[in-house]
Amino acid sequence: MIAMTQLRVGERAKIVDLSQVSNLVKRRLLDMGVTEGSEICLKCTMPLGGPFMIENYGQCVGIRRNEAKNIQVKPL
């Protein structure tokens, strides 16, 4: 199990733990169907500590690096 920030661009992983993520962000991710057990793919990262773009069943979501750091994933 690693933090999402340790994934390489293009790598796929399964979300294992969202409990450390701030409430507001977790709610939004839930709204978009991104939960524990969801399969994601890291699409790209923005420079200088900028946000991450992840894909989940064909939809893309942007989140901040410091939130991604708190998301535990298992690479597939």
Binding site: V25, M53, V61, I63
Partner: peptide, 10 residues
């Protein structure tokens, strides 16, 4: 409050 950011990319 701290700032928060989650965005859907259609």
């Amino acid at each position: 409050e701290a700032s928060v950011f989650v965005v859907e990319l259609p």
